[in-house]
Design a binder for these strands. Structure first.
Length: 575
RNA sequence: GCACCGAUGGUCUAGUGGCUAGGACCUGAGCCUUCCAAGCUCAUGGCCCGGGUUCAAAUCCCGGUCGGUGCACCA
């Protein structure tokens, strides 16, 4: 990985940000090559998961007011309390130490001072070495970046730890745009922030990173996806059961097989696993070093009922590239509770249903004078009673209890009636299936999987075998020599290719071999050289990065040929 | 946050309590050159930061920052 790391820095893929000021751990700048590669990767994601799936893309703020994270559960889950053992130096979750060794079940909600007290009072010891923890300070690690919105103390806000909440909080509007029809998906590509205690491994664990997330809203009783569209995709599955038995055996199943055999529980999850696999292959992840690993029960996030991670292997480590989670109705239900808006969809029945419903319409001109300020509560109690127990209204009087006090109302004053009501549907909370991708991790893995060293006549050639579609530069243009008009022709050609929308690098420095090597290092799939023959017959040589083969192509055809190669419509071997 | 290790041009490195900190690659200019890192000339550019010891610190000591690895954490 060190060669790749060096290449990344030297050639401008990514490097640590703000190095002039010493740098801060966990923040990276994508250089010219990396920014282009990342943009292309994002573009293919958008093509697959937004455009081709017919989903909608949004772009929500990164700064988010506190109540959103109260609702989502992130705020509570964030205050990790750590206590360090003076003896062995191990850090432990202080709330877990307390909960595991006392009757206290909600230590997580205690302030740190109180947790310190509890530890001292119960003589709790270090789970690793048994040394007393009394007197050790309990420190809080909040993994969200906090900020304040507006002047002064303002109102507290946080940089979002995931883009997903944007899709959830805007659900009431998004469902309108989807014309209240399930299923529909809302996607977002953007940055998220996690104040990691210890960022590691370059882009793999950064504090600010780009995510591409799709929240796909489904009717839990509705129709599943059209699996015939992904029928031939084989999924390398590593289920929880196999991990627990320490097996390394992967199951290779199509989505339908995985569902029929009960390996994957949800049709939409199986569908998106298949779409994901094909996408990863498209951007250059090596399928020999790729798998879907199911989360173990204890590993699941607070919002998930099931989750499969797409993982890529780099230097012996498996890196999580994507999580496909069943978030059920967790998020929308939470926001329904906390927010003012409606996070449900009205689902129409095939046929309207006629149901009998017991209702009351109390005579308030009687209840008011009779019960004064309690009249409203009595009305509510009557309504509830009517729904619960119609027979209570059989007699001449009805008695309800409000705050422990009994109120008796003549039945004729309650307006009790049983009416037939037509219901055309009901409100349901959609379930969410979430494919969430780490873009930086994908970029990193693509670089690692495509980095290659070639032996050419004793010389080592560094080459990035990136798929043409995501390569930062599509074509390099060189004059064989910058004289005799070759340079002018080449510069014209480069301008024409750029005008056609291709990403072009022009290079006239050094001998021709050196220029090919430069482009090999940054993954440019094709290079064009203008030579003396070009001046006579208007052809150029077109060179393929991976084979170093060359063919002559008419200058007039060049734009079409290169674009077709990039888009996978033609093969170099067939030219 | 802890432990261990490390930090020298853009990159990779040599090196030492004391001359102008050396090399390779890269990059730029020029010469040469008719398709895969050729050669020659020249040029740009460096001892992570702060404090201490010392006549003298890039070198030794302390602290910090950053990085690597392990522990812990990873919603």
């Amino acid at each position: 990985m060190s060669e790749l790391d060096e290449l990344a820095r030297r050639r401008g893929f990514f490097f640590q940000a703000n190095e002039a000021y010493g740098g801060v751990s966990g923040f990276y700048t994508y250089g010219p090559e990396g920014a282009a590669l990342k943009r292309n990767v994002e573009e293919t994601w958008r093509d697959r998961f937004v455009t081709r799936e017919g989903n909608m893309e949004i772009d929500a703020p990164t700064v988010t007011p506190e109540p959103v994270f109260v609702a989502s559960g992130h705020l509570d889950g964030f205050d990790d309390m750590l206590v360090e053992c003076a003896e062995c130096g191990e850090s432990h979750r202080a709330d877990h130490v307390v909960e595991d060794n006392t009757d206290i079940a909600d230590a997580e909600t205690y302030p740190t001072e109180k947790v310190e007290e509890v530890i001292a009072k119960h003589d709790l010891v270090c789970p690793s070495c048994g040394a007393p923890l009394a007197g050790q300070s309990v420190d809080e690690f909040n993994l969200m970046f906090e900020t304040s919105i507006g002047p002064g103390s303002g109102q507290p806000g946080y940089l979002r730890p995931e883009t997903a909440q944007g899709m959830f909080t805007e659900f009431p509007r998004l469902k309108e745009y989807a014309r209240n029809q399930l299923p529909f998906g809302a996607a977002q590509i953007g940055t998220g922030y996690r104040n990691e205690i210890s960022p590691r491994k370059a882009l793999v664990r950064a504090r600010e990173f780009t995510m591409a997330e799709l929240e796909f809203f489904v009717d839990p009783e509705g129709n599943g996806p059209d699996l015939s569209r992904v029928a031939d995709v084989e999924l390398p599955l590593y289920p929880a059961g196999a991990q627990e038995s320490e097996g390394e055996e992967y199951l290779h199943l199509t989505p339908r097989e995985a569902l029929e055999e009960g390996v994957v529980g949800d049709e939409w999850v199986a569908y998106f696993l298949a779409r994901s696999k094909v996408w990863f292959e498209r951007v250059g992840v090596d399928m020999e070093r790729f798998r879907f690993r199911q989360h173990l029960p204890g590993e699941l996030a607070h919002y998930a009922s099931d989750c499969w991670d797409a993982e890529g292997e780099v230097d012996g480590d498996w890196i999580e590239l994507e999580g496909v989670a069943s978030r059920t109705d967790y998020d929308l239900s939470k926001h329904s509770e906390h927010a003012d808006d409606t996070f449900t969809i009205f689902k129409q029945y095939d046929e309207p249903k006629t149901v009998e419903r017991a209702t009351v319409d109390p005579d308030m001109s009687y209840l008011g004078p009779e019960f004064g300020g309690d009249a409203g509560a009595v009305e509510d109690a009557l309504e509830a009673l009517a729904e619960r127990d119609r027979s209570a209204f059989d007699g001449d009087e009805v008695t309800v209890e409000v705050d422990g006090e009994a109120y008796t109302v003549p039945t004729e004053k309650t307006g009790f009636a049983v009416e037939e009501v037509t219901e055309s549907g009901r409100h349901i909370v959609p379930h969410v299936v979430e494919p969430a991708f780490g873009v930086g991790r994908a970029v990193y893995t693509v670089l690692a999987h495509n980095y290659d060293e070639d032996e050419v006549e004793g010389e080592t050639r560094d080459v990035l075998r990136l798929p043409a579609e995501v390569s930062p530069t599509t074509v390099g243009v060189f004059p064989l020599m910058d004289k005799d008009g070759l340079g002018d022709t080449a510069r014209d050609l480069a301008a024409d290719l750029r005008e056609a929308g291709l990403s072009v690098t022009y290079d006239d420095s050094g001998n021709i071999g050196r220029r090919y090597r430069r482009q090999d290092e940054v993954g440019t799939p094709y290079c064009v050289t203008v030579d003396y023959e070009s001046l006579e017959d208007d052809t150029v040589t077109l060179r393929d990065r991976d084979t170093t083969d060359q063919v002559r192509v008419d200058i007039d055809d060049l734009v079409d040929v290169v674009a077709a190669l990039r888009d996978g419509e033609r093969d170099f071997a067939d030219l």
